[in-house]
Design a binder for these strands. Structure first.
Lengths: 166, 166
DNA sequence: TATTGTTATACTCTATAACTATA
DNA sequence: TATAGTTATAGAGTATAACAATA
């Protein structure tokens, strides 16, 4: 527990904070519309498919690891994974190493949906975010925010947090 | 309507996009927890109060202007404004210039809640976002994202969009 | 006719707590 | 005992369409 700085944020700090939140919020809204129309996916569902299909070599992940990465509660992931499974885009099977764990795998149909959705998705991201940033800005933004994400993720994990705090 | 670029995003572009979305998502989650505990506010409600209390000289705004800035549908804003009004944090009154419009005003109680919530809010933003960014990074981030927000907002407004597209 | 705002409604999503099963 | 995951449940939030009132 660090002592808190009593000074209010200055205009530049507030500007960075609100700009970040507004841009992400507007972008997410735009992107969600595209995903819904192109593939009947929510953004969270897209994140899950993208994590499995683009972010791992095997196309598989444990439920808890997915929850820590994408969703903030275990039951939330169970719900979303259930929807994806019902749509045939992922499968769930008990892990062979640890019988408590469940391994989620993207299916061929899941990869197909990802392929279908990706071009339009890319268009939206390019038009809304990347175009006004330009090449150099894109690089700078990634350089700034990637360490921030790492810093945030280094803090106590979301899925287990509640449980451990009892 | 611009022709779409058929090339997929490269790693740097994907990195910037996902880092932005992840950071905003994690930050929003952290901030929402603080707002709920400190002042029983959702993030949207905080945005509304902050827009009125910090973003305008008069502490007032029209419903439609608030909707365009904060929420994405008129009915969504009616709902949130209703909650804030029931809590005594804002008032709503018909505009004198245009009888169709409703002017929302932050109350003293609303400003008080804002004051109560702000120090803890600031702590979270500082610890999660600003500290790892450092001074220079904060400035750079604001410089990158403010034009992006302007670019996004220059596009057809959210509240009227659906209606006009009929 | 177009715009402002509200209402009714239905739906999606999320989190909490209780529970089962395995380590 | 601790961890992985599910279920039941309840609540918050959002959007759509239909509506009333004013410009």
């Amino acid at each position: 527990m660090t002592a808190s700085d009593p000074r209010p944020l200055d205009d530049e700090q507030l500007g960075a904070y609100f700009a970040l939140m507004d841009v992400a919020s507007l972008l997410r809204h735009a992107v969600e519309q595209q995903l819904r129309e192109a593939g009947d996916l929510s953004y969270v569902q897209f994140q899950l498919l993208a994590t499995l299909g683009l972010g791992t070599p095997t196309g598989t992940a444990r439920m808890t690891d997915l929850a820590d990465r994408v969703v903030y509660s275990r039951s939330g992931l169970t719900y979303q994974a259930g929807l994806l499974e019902a749509a045939g885009l992922v499968t769930r099977a008990p892990s062979e190493e640890d019988e408590r764990s469940v391994v989620v795998s993207i299916t061929d149909a899941g990869r197909e949906v990802l392929r279908t959705v990706l071009p339009g998705h890319t268009d939206v991201v390019r038009q809304q975010l990347l175009e006004p940033l330009s090449r150099r800005g894109t690089s700078a933004l990634a350089g700034l925010l990637t360490p921030v994400r790492d810093h945030m993720r280094a803090q106590p994990p979301r899925s287990a947090g509640r449980r451990r705090r009892r």
